[in-house]
Design a binder for these strands. Structure first.
Lengths: 202, 202
DNA sequence: CTTCGTAGGCGTACGTTGTACTCTTACGAA
DNA sequence: TTCGTAAGAGTACAACGTACGCCTACGAAG
């Protein structure tokens, strides 16, 4: 068997992630990633069959850094919160990949591992049957929605500023936007999660 | 002033929505929409400046059918649930547009109106200040996450089937997937929302 | 009724994307 | 040393968004 591959998939994913971090998700093209690696464009297809698969590699790289072992904390709520916070931290480091997380959450081992971890905690907490299904999916919905909100426009971002401006038409929205300036992303995420967890009962 | 426009923006949006409903979001191109209207591709640019703006028109059309007047129900939780359910119904009729809703939620009047309605209910319920910001954003996160989950792969869809299959590696996930087959989208949405609302306190 | 300017509609063309196909060549096994 | 295989690169094409410029239908002005 001739010739070793000059790249590992991790290196490929790292290059793609570097492009995304530097120039945004729109810059993630086969050509730019190939340039990043000083390779021909078509050479990438020796490692991935698709542009989609390249995206999946990026997702896996981001989620690969997350430790999904269940922490040893007094309550199951704290365990769930800790796992979620770990995910948030990993994702927050690469805000531009959030849309990719959503697109590929079906086919991603990382996403599956996170689900398995959360479900395990909930099962030990006494959730079972359809109740657990509902609770798990609700938790996931919040997680996904919150990550996306943070990635696409944090509370203290320009979008919020714009909202604060047009106060005539949307008074509540404007007032909320003003107040939101003092809420950090991690406070929003943490307290919102605490709020959801309060509603979760086995 | 010469020559009337042969199209209203509503007709344009309707054509675009028809394309998306029929052939999926990927089929939403300037060319296909132009064909749908029996027009030249470039003619569309007399009505929109961008492909993005065309997408916004679609979002507005979908959300335009939603009644955001606050219903007269005993509790504020029921009011919120009712508004959310109306949104869900409107979106559910056009599952493929969910990604567009997320992309344009910043610049969409429809999204703003929904936010204003929900904030109004919460304000009357006694929420104020940062507490209201957190609660509102958490509710929105759930809403967005749940709509997306439903749009991309409902509980009884093929993705869930696939999960049920690989039981060795992810036992909890597989068991959950099996149970999830009996949970309808509206039950998942409604009960998940009820769960989040239980955690919301003014 | 005629004329005219404006704006609606369209055809062409260019840059960018993903990727199919083909060729060259480096390298491990023999 | 040789040789087959797989790595890597170049070329090319279809589909995309859209800049540009032309033609022309039509409301207003005479």
């Amino acid at each position: 068997m001739p010739r070793r591959r000059s790249l590992t998939t991790d290196q490929l994913a790292a290059a793609a992630l570097a492009v995304v971090d530097r120039d945004g998700l729109a810059a993630l093209t086969m050509r730019t990633v190939a340039q990043e690696l000083n390779m021909g464009t078509m050479s990438l297809y020796r490692y991935v069959s698709d542009r989609e698969q390249l995206e999946r590699l990026v997702v896996e790289l981001v989620l690969g850094g997350v430790d999904f072992t269940v922490p040893d904390l007094p309550t199951w709520q704290e365990c769930v919160a800790e796992i979620c916070e770990r995910i948030r931290l990993a994702v927050q480091a690469h805000p531009a990949v959030v849309p990719l997380l959503l697109l590929h959450r079906h086919a991603s081992p990382g996403v599956r591992r996170s689900g398995e971890a959360l479900l395990g905690i909930m099962a030990r907490a006494g959730f079972s049957g359809e109740r657990r299904v509902i609770a798990f999916r609700a938790l996931l919905a919040y997680l996904v929605g919150a990550l996306q909100a943070e990635g696409l426009g944090p509370l203290s971002g320009p979008g919020t500023e714009a909202l604060a401006a047009l106060g005539e038409q949307y008074p509540y929205l404007a007032e909320t936007a003003v107040t939101a300036r003092n809420v950090s992303p991690q406070r929003e995420f943490g307290e919102g999660l605490a709020l959801v967890l309060r509603g979760l009962t086995p």
